[in-house]
Simulated assay, not measured.
Amino acid sequence: MKIAIAGGNGFIGKAMCQLFLEQRCQVYILTRRPERLLPQPGVTYVSWMHEGDQPEQELEGVDAIINLAGLSLNSGRWTAARKAALLESRLATTKEIIRMIKALKQPPSVLLNASAVGYYGISRDRTFTEQDVVEPTDFLSLVVHQWEQEALKSGIRTVLMRLGVVLGADEGAFPKMMLPYKLFVGGKLGSGEQPLSWIHVEDAARAAYHCMMTPSIQGAVNFTAPEPVTMGQFGQAIAAQMHRPHYFPVPGAVLKLALGEMSLLLLEGQRVMPEKLLANEYSFQYPTVAEAIKQLLDKR
């Protein structure tokens, strides 16, 4: 099986690439700087997003394309310029993916496009599944709505991977969330009651492969573990696994002052269930926070 990945050198992309290679797939990584990357058996680096690039010439015969490209949401304070860049980076890369698909003589059978549970907006009371259709209520949900609408222009089976907070041992949110506990100053952020819908990075990769291999799966798919928690419960789980205290709270006002609107990522959330994955017999490797955190700490 031949799989092309945009953003294949990122945190989630590397986990997917590793899994696909283990499954004896041939992987094509779309990258702006192929010359900077070390050769890997089974991996072909394809230049894209430069004037004159025609990556589709190297992608004839690919079975699936995965789009993970876009500026990180926590790459800087959400100024007006940063907001514009966050949105444009997602729309531009997705438009290029769509152009490539339509340029291929034999298009792939499926596009898996990254998205986020931010689609559902902010709520501490509701539980969301893929059946919920909501209107944008904040910047993040607006970005996700526009991103998904662009991806749905592919003309092929499209899976919108609505990712929760992805946990990995050395990258993503977990190392930053673990650090205060390592320093014995861990505690709740804000009220601690904000919901956290999360997924282990290995489950994110395995769920993507499951969606690729299951032709009946299309549209929005929540990439979240089946047991969401509150931010307070998540912190307590880290403290318990690390045998550290959990009593140094960080007031919401302090985070808002330090991070501005980006504090939304820490102080608000939504409870999201992976209804479609469960209905299609996906078995989570790390279904609970305790199991996920234990594995991540053992891996460090």
Rank of each mutant, 00 (worst) to 15 (best):
C25K: 01
F223L: 15
D125H: 09
R126P: 01
M161N: 00
E275Y: 11
E96Y: 04
G155H: 00
A69T: 09
L112H: 02
L196F: 14
E202R: 05
E130F: 01
Y209G: 01
Q23S: 11
K256R: 15
R36S: 14
L265S: 10
E58S: 12
P55S: 03
V133N: 14
P226H: 13
K176G: 00
R271C: 13
L163E: 04
L255D: 08
A4W: 05
A84H: 09
E227K: 14
G42I: 08
R244L: 01
F184Y: 15
R33W: 12
A169M: 05
I3Y: 01
S123V: 12
I122L: 15
E51P: 02
H246W: 11
K256L: 05
R124G: 14
V117D: 07
S283W: 10
N222L: 02
L189S: 07
G219K: 03
I65V: 02
S154C: 04
L160S: 11
L152K: 07
R244K: 10
H246Q: 08
I3G: 06
V133M: 13
A258S: 10
N9D: 11
L278V: 11
S283V: 15
T158F: 05
I199L: 13
I66F: 08
S75Q: 10
I293P: 06
M178D: 02
R77F: 00
A173W: 11
R99Q: 12
G155F: 03
V110E: 01
S47D: 03
E171H: 13
T94E: 09
E88M: 12
P195D: 02
Q57M: 08
V201R: 00
L189I: 14
G70W: 01
A69G: 10
L278M: 14
R82Y: 05
R90L: 03
L71N: 08
A225G: 13
G186C: 07
V201M: 04
A103E: 09
E281F: 13
E56R: 05
K294I: 08
P55A: 02
L73W: 03
S263N: 00
V43W: 04
S75G: 12
I238V: 15
T288H: 11
I217Y: 01
G118E: 15
I156V: 05
A81C: 06
L91T: 11
R77G: 03
G10D: 08
W48H: 03
G8E: 09
D125P: 02
G232Q: 10
R24V: 08
V62F: 03
E281L: 12
Q18W: 05
R124P: 00
K95W: 08
R36C: 08
E150T: 15
H50K: 13
